[in-house]
Design a binder for these strands. Structure first.
Lengths: 191, 191
DNA sequence: GTTTACATGTAATCAGTTACATGATTAC
DNA sequence: GTAATCATGTAACTGATTACATGTAAAC
């Protein structure tokens, strides 16, 4: 039940479905993803429920848009969600499940290659987040603690993103080292 | 499409649906969760597809059980999943979305209380994982790098769990500090 | 003229949750 | 006797993905 709350959060400012998809790709991708085919019907449904209002919008470029904005009822539902306290314990991390069963490959080299791929992915992602942070701090002297509230809380999520990806990167590097050492030892004394 | 692969992974050793649910609650809870009402029908479906075999099992305690085990076809599907490389970019972290919109509460004290709740949750979870690690290392001199393969890879996921929860805890502590400092400053010079 | 980005949607399917139903055995 | 744990399932619903369908406008 979180996508609807995320849409409520985003629609404090007016956005089209297409705009929202971009928000997911740029800012929210650290913690949520959604497809257009989920976004469009949900926006319509939420308008029917009185959580959103919409109007026809002009586009500077391209075809007509439908612009949604949070209604009063939507604001109270959003606040209710935040007042419930943190929603935890629902995370699903597929690559951790894969690592858990990696012995089933019965192939040291393939297992190491798997972990190297994970390491490279984390390194790229970290570079991306660090760029974003650098750009932000270079362009706003209030970064990070003098930012207005809305931006301040967004910065907190960027900070957690950085910390988590660093933890993942350090972990995957340590895994590669440990797996290589085991492989080497196994070569020296088989079975 | 990951739960079916997780079941394939677990069913290298024979388990009932009920056993599997316990596995989720004890070992896998760091990265996946599943309800019995999802597990039972999926086991049946996967047996129909020839991925699993089952037999009637005697229970030392309680009623009859149905015991499932991975079939040859299941093993190759599991390997195919691992050979595809790490499944990344699908994570959904609801509490990060909540933090992103926390300004909408328009109430410093409530926002701080939210973050303190998150901090306490992470502290508890960390204590739990540290206990589990201590117990393991106390009871097996091979811990962590001389463990047999299956256990070694499970230890890698415990290690990542510890690193991630520590990152979350440090982050939430830093958030509480930063939010308190902003609140104090705001009190000193309003608007 | 073709590709890319803009823009919105439907249909079919798959994955996951919540609520309900049943019954055995053990511990107190 | 009653509560807790063991044990398996179905039904209804909600959430999310994949594939398909349509069309505009700008850039090259």
């Amino acid at each position: 039940m979180s996508l609807r709350h995320i849409l409520l959060g985003l629609l404090g400012d007016p956005h089209s479905g297409y705009d929202i998809k971009k928000k997911f790709e740029h800012s929210l991708r650290n913690f949520w993803r959604a497809e257009l085919s989920q976004i469009y019907p949900l926006l319509q449904k939420m308008e029917d429920e009185g959580l959103l209002n919409s109007k026809e919008g002009e586009s500077d470029i391209g075809p007509r848009k439908r612009i949604y904005k949070r209604a009063a009822k939507g604001s109270s539902e959003l606040k209710a969600w935040l007042n419930e306290g943190p929603v935890v314990g629902t995370e699903r991390i597929a690559y951790m499940a894969q690592v858990y069963f990696l012995a089933e490959l019965r192939d040291d080299s393939k297992a190491i290659a798997f972990m190297e791929e994970l390491r490279d992915y984390m390194a790229n992602w970290l570079a991306l987040l660090e760029d974003r942070e650098k750009e932000w701090s270079d362009n706003d002297p209030r970064y990070p603690d003098e930012l207005p509230d809305e931006a301040f809380y967004q910065q907190l999520t960027l900070d957690l993103g950085l910390r988590k990806v660093r933890a993942n990167l350090e972990w995957s590097e340590s895994c590669v080292r440990r797996m290589r050492a085991r492989k080497k030892q196994r070569k020296a004394m088989p079975h």
